[in-house]
Simulated assay, not measured.
Amino acid sequence: MTKLFASLLLAGAALSAQAASAPVTVQGAWARPIVPGQQSSGAYMTLVASEPLTLLGGESPAAGIVEIHQMKMEGDIMKMRAAENLPLVPGKPLQLAPGGYHFMLMDLQDPFKAGSQIPFTLRFRDAKGKVSTVQLRLPVQRVAPHDAHR
């Protein structure tokens, strides 16, 4: 248990350090493990921008396809659709979480196993049209980390 706790602390520190120079902070980032035969997973996080930004998407060498998706109730049916991009309002958290907006990782190169990490890159565009990236290492775990809802 102590080894797992230390790994989670290091992963959190790495996320904070890697995002520190960008105009966005990333909190509670994680990805779900998959079961045998499954070819997709979800990645979740909370983004807080310090200036107007647009989340353009993400990419990872661990997945052939990474898309922003939205889960939404339409009547009695839960539907999932791809979203082209998402605006970030300065100071207002954008939560990417199960049951709402999230990253869908498809065509996985290897199974995502709990306790591992996957490299992940976020892409943003600022109000002047400049595109920037934030490099992350997402911990793969069964449940959201304790700081996922800040």
Rank of each mutant, 00 (worst) to 15 (best):
A20R: 11
V24W: 09
T121Q: 09
V24N: 02
P111S: 06
P33L: 00
H102N: 07
I77V: 12
F112T: 01
H149T: 12
P98R: 12
K128D: 12
M78F: 14
P145N: 10
L4V: 11
L136I: 09
K79C: 09
L88N: 01
A29Q: 13
Q117M: 12
A144F: 07
L88H: 01
D126E: 08
Q70N: 14
Q117W: 00
G37P: 10
V134A: 03
V66T: 08
Q109C: 08
A49W: 00
L47F: 04
D126T: 08
A49S: 13
S50M: 06
D126R: 06
T2R: 15
S116M: 00
P36G: 12
L9I: 11
V66M: 02
L122W: 08
R137T: 15
A49L: 07
A17I: 14
D76K: 15
M104D: 01
A19F: 14
I68C: 03
V134H: 04
L53V: 01
A22G: 14
M71R: 09
K3Y: 14
S7D: 10
L88T: 02
L105S: 01
L55C: 10
A97W: 00
R32I: 00
G57Q: 06
L122A: 09
E84Q: 13
V89Y: 02
S7L: 15
I65G: 07
V66Q: 01
R81C: 09
L56M: 13
G42Q: 04
D107M: 05
G64N: 01
V134S: 05
V66R: 01
A13G: 14
A14W: 09
L94E: 02
R81I: 10
A43M: 02
S60W: 08
A31Y: 00
V89G: 08
L10G: 11
A114S: 07
L56P: 05
Q141D: 01
L96A: 07
V134L: 04
Y44L: 02
L94P: 03
R81G: 09
L10M: 11
G91T: 09
Q109I: 11
S16Q: 15
E67W: 04
E74A: 14
I68V: 07
L88C: 00
G115C: 09
Q141K: 10
A114D: 10
V35Q: 15
E67L: 02
R137W: 13
A97D: 05
A127S: 13
A22Q: 11
V143W: 15
A127I: 05
A20T: 13
Q135P: 11
H146Y: 15
S132R: 14
M71L: 01
R137A: 15
P87R: 09
G28E: 06
A29W: 05
K113V: 04
F112G: 01
Q95G: 02
A127P: 08
V66W: 06
L138R: 06
I68E: 00
P139N: 10
H146C: 12
V134T: 04
H102I: 00
Q70T: 03
K72S: 15
L105K: 05
L96Q: 06
K79H: 04
H149M: 15
S60R: 03
R137H: 15
P52Q: 06
P90L: 10
P145L: 05
P93S: 14
Q117V: 11
S40T: 08
D110H: 14
T54A: 10
H102K: 06
T2D: 13
